[in-house]
Design a protein around this nucleic acid. Sequence first.
DNA 1: AATGAATGAGTCTTCATTCAT
DNA 2: GATGAATGAAGACTCATTCAT
Lengths: 216, 216, 216, 216
Amino acid sequence: MNGPDNLIEEIFEQSDELTEKQKKIILAAIQAFAEKGYASTSTSEIARNAGVAEGTIFRHYKTKKDLLYSIIEPMVKKFIAPFVIKDMEKVLNEKHATFEDFLRAMIENRIKFLSKNMLLFKILIQEIPFQPELKGLFKEHIGTKVIARFSQVVEHYQEKGQLIDLPPFSIIRLTASAIFGYIIVRNLLLPELDWDDKAEIDRTIQMIMHGISAET
Amino acid sequence: MNGPDNLIEEIFEQSDELTEKQKKIILAAIQAFAEKGYASTSTSEIARNAGVAEGTIFRHYKTKKDLLYSIIEPMVKKFIAPFVIKDMEKVLNEKHATFEDFLRAMIENRIKFLSKNMLLFKILIQEIPFQPELKGLFKEHIGTKVIARFSQVVEHYQEKGQLIDLPPFSIIRLTASAIFGYIIVRNLLLPELDWDDKAEIDRTIQMIMHGISAET
Amino acid sequence: MNGPDNLIEEIFEQSDELTEKQKKIILAAIQAFAEKGYASTSTSEIARNAGVAEGTIFRHYKTKKDLLYSIIEPMVKKFIAPFVIKDMEKVLNEKHATFEDFLRAMIENRIKFLSKNMLLFKILIQEIPFQPELKGLFKEHIGTKVIARFSQVVEHYQEKGQLIDLPPFSIIRLTASAIFGYIIVRNLLLPELDWDDKAEIDRTIQMIMHGISAET
Amino acid sequence: MNGPDNLIEEIFEQSDELTEKQKKIILAAIQAFAEKGYASTSTSEIARNAGVAEGTIFRHYKTKKDLLYSIIEPMVKKFIAPFVIKDMEKVLNEKHATFEDFLRAMIENRIKFLSKNMLLFKILIQEIPFQPELKGLFKEHIGTKVIARFSQVVEHYQEKGQLIDLPPFSIIRLTASAIFGYIIVRNLLLPELDWDDKAEIDRTIQMIMHGISAET
DNA sequence: AATGAATGAGTCTTCATTCAT
DNA sequence: GATGAATGAAGACTCATTCAT
């Protein structure tokens, strides 16, 4: 286990410096940013929904953008945490005999994490293209560290003969696409459908591992 | 073949009613919307970049949102066109002996289309979550017509014994995720990388069809 | 008799130079000015309602204000015409034995005139306070010529012993107030009521002449 | 006595919530609306004259129209107040032996009120025709309550044999026309004349009561 | 720490007017 | 004469941010 998985709660618990009002501000901001987008959300609206005065926001966050970053940064860091810490090694060496095991563990873990923090995830993917700082943060962390770490994993299983002999980057891309595609369709595009999550995740893993040809 | 594939040019050619200024406005708007997002782009900025007076924009588009829609609507329609017309049937019956053939044809076609209209595609996926009308348009067209049509295709090849026996929707989701994932990573997230598109598309198809397990 | 009494028609007939379009513009302008006020009416709206292009208005009237004046000026002139021409003398010497006769003739005539040109009258009284030129025109014509002429009439009947010995200006004011009060209430404030115009005018004259005390 | 009679001061005194700036805004708005009309007055002009930022206006009044209404509504209510409260009954039973007494009291009171609030009165009568809400407010209050109340008074004196036997509505109309005619001519049309108000009001009452015939 | 009145630059949009066709 | 695209100044209104209390 690594934490309560609910990022917002976690943030609140970690720092006792957070005023009650500050928490309300963060919650209201998350809600509004996710719903209407950062640019279309006014600070006065956040203040209103948080039940605080307009000025209060700026007492805690110098600018509106600061407020956004204070929300997104923990999200990014927390999301990639499992991929960078030494857990990864453990993962590799001991736990998972097959890549499929590893994949399943990974997926279940991260899907749970994202589902619990869907609003934050939505804000993150919506704002990354427009916030250079975020883009930098993202590229550096994901594009470098995570992919690098993952490449090791892939190569590890390739050496074991479990994985097809394609460039690790391509394999990672396909895998990540399948996972994010599932999360986005399931939670953002068609959340109103009646989902059998367990089965759907199983199928997704199956298709990632064995493709969609019948002869498999 | 169906048309010049470059949507903007096509729009310009189709309607001779478009003033020179109007074309400039559209180009400037596309550029700006893609770069900074719809909400963060001001009409005065569009006017400046288009080299016209701000009032000119509103002579042609009643509101800023109208301008956005006039850009996105053809995009949506054009994108899904190949999936809804009867070409689809032809595709099924005659042309493609295997699903892989079909998939390859489809991917190449749509990737070419999207690559040529990357800015429009970016605007589209950025704004869909925040524009209810767009969301409606999208859901109706994609969520209904396209998926339905595709399901037929999948079932067709399932009956032929070429495809795995999973719910068509899951198969479509995985396939679409892989394709869009490729397009987004290649064009939006890491465009600066040195891509061997042909090989990368091949690998993507290969992984979709046969999975990433070595034993395939 | 003095003309068709319907000013708009009259204006149209007098000048054959008026294009068909020009007539439409004037009609649309009158309608709009009366309904929403001069300042709140846009030239584009007038053009639309008149079925002409925006530029056409400015071909005939240099400015929006010119259009207003071209409408109001004939109104002012035509309204006060009966009071300034020599008809007045005839009125005095021959026609009307009593002031009441004179008043009745006057009222019926002018009420008919105003009722037929209610829209113009409404524009006139709405815009006078805000258009210095109009105010000047009005003051000069009404405040000088008309009152002067009327004063002669009043003095004439005072000498005949038919009218009370108060300053003519006060008598004119009371009389004019009663008449305009009737016209405004009848046509502008409560037009939806069921009016017996003939009786109401009779009563108005009666009250002007004999007051509202019972002993009369 | 009922209050300071000067509405603006009264409004200011009643609500201590009014900021100094807010008062300045109201004063500047009244001045400008009366001078140029509501539609021709820009909020930036009001702000400039009030010595505040334009945004300040909209902090206190959601829209320009709200500002207008906040000015006019107290005017309407205060103006008709004397006619609807029970003072009226007192007036009837005890105070005034004759209708003339009543009329004189009424006129002096309301003329004083209007003279002190001339700007507001001007705004009111200018905007009523174009503001449906105002028209409604006006019709309901004046057209229903006030006329009804006044009709009772007229009938009361008719039964006493003091008033002519004409429809009360006609009598009220004549009387009101005479009064408003006086106020408008005196204050709005020809304010620069040298008025002997006391005498002029006397004459007006005399003419209302006894008409303008000599034999009275 | 919290407030909320105040700001003024900036937003989208409208408008009267011009002018090439 | 008529058009309607083009203009840019001006309009109402919003916004992130500041600051005295």
